[in-house]
């Protein structure tokens, strides 16, 4: 455990020492801020109580911004270490590969959580701006559920990004591969879920589309089927990453 904590601390520190981290942060905060301003404009003309949480968490802008941002966080995790040769050095120590993978995963997840911190400011703003006669706005239950969704989707995307980073020593290749996979799948699955004329394709899209899931999460729905899907897929990508790194050790 102490090895994991040491590795995690190192990953955490490295995340915040990288200049690209602040570029990502700036980009994401501008996008989410713009999304929030659009939401405020919409709400001046009167919207349903659910609109706010769905607008903050489930909007199209963020659905397609996250698949763009996550590869920028994960691209360096293994690719950089491989390029610098520090990975091979690390693998010669007693560090176990699953610990290493989990530490990098947790470090990236914490950085991803930091990206979502402005949401607290948005929610505080909504509470302050809400007329006194409206009770229960924003919806506390829906906010908790939305954060669960944000965490699960982030976990899967980071696991995918980590896996791509473990496959190559080139950060750009890792980023492009992750972006292609995450953005492409989000686009295709959202299309399948909403526009497919075949009901079986539509069901498949609805099962895997993070856009559809985020709409449900942000209205307070926690569904075991979706949660298990995210956990299983994240675990599988982490497992593949572990095997890829272990292959380097041999």
């Amino acid at each position: 455990m102490s090895v994991f904590l040491s590795l995690f601390k190192k990953e955490f520190r490295t995340s915040f020492l990288s200049p690209i981290a602040y570029v990502v942060m700036f980009f994401f905060w501008v996008l989410s801020g713009g999304n929030f301003i659009w939401l405020l404009q919409q709400m001046t003309s009167g919207k349903s109580l659910m609109f706010a949480t769905q607008g903050i968490f489930g909007g199209m802008v963020l659905t397609f911004a996250v698949p763009f941002v996550v590869p920028l966080i994960t691209m360096r995790l293994f690719a950089e270490e491989r390029k610098l040769g520090t990975l091979e050095a690390l693998l010669t120590t007693s560090v176990r590969v699953p610990e290493l993978v989990l530490a990098k995963f947790a470090g990236a997840l914490v950085f991803y959580a930091v990206l979502w911190l402005p949401v607290l400011v948005y929610l505080f703003t909504l509470v302050r701006l809400c007329p006194q006669e409206v009770v229960g706005f924003p919806d506390g239950g829906a906010i908790w559920s939305a954060f669960v969704g944000v965490f699960l989707i982030g976990a899967l995307y980071i696991a995918v990004g980590l896996c791509m980073s473990a496959m190559t020593s080139n950060q750009i290749v890792a980023a492009i591969a992750s972006f292609a996979l995450l953005f492409g799948s989000t686009l295709v699955l959202t299309f399948m879920a909403s526009s497919s004329q075949s009901s079986s394709v539509q069901v498949l899209g609805q099962y895997y589309s993070s856009y559809v899931h985020m709409l449900d999460f942000s209205r307070g729905i926690l569904d075991s089927r979706i949660i298990v899907m995210y956990l299983c897929n994240s675990a599988w990508f982490l497992f593949v990453t572990t095997r890829l790194i272990e292959a380097k050790r041999v």
Binding site: S145, G220, I221, L222, S224, A235
Partner: peptide
Amino acid sequence: SLLVGVAALRNPYRIDLSTRNF
């Protein structure tokens, strides 16, 4: 992973945390 997913599909559990109950 797929088997666990299928098992979850067959035994769904769903809760609505929203306070609106819409």
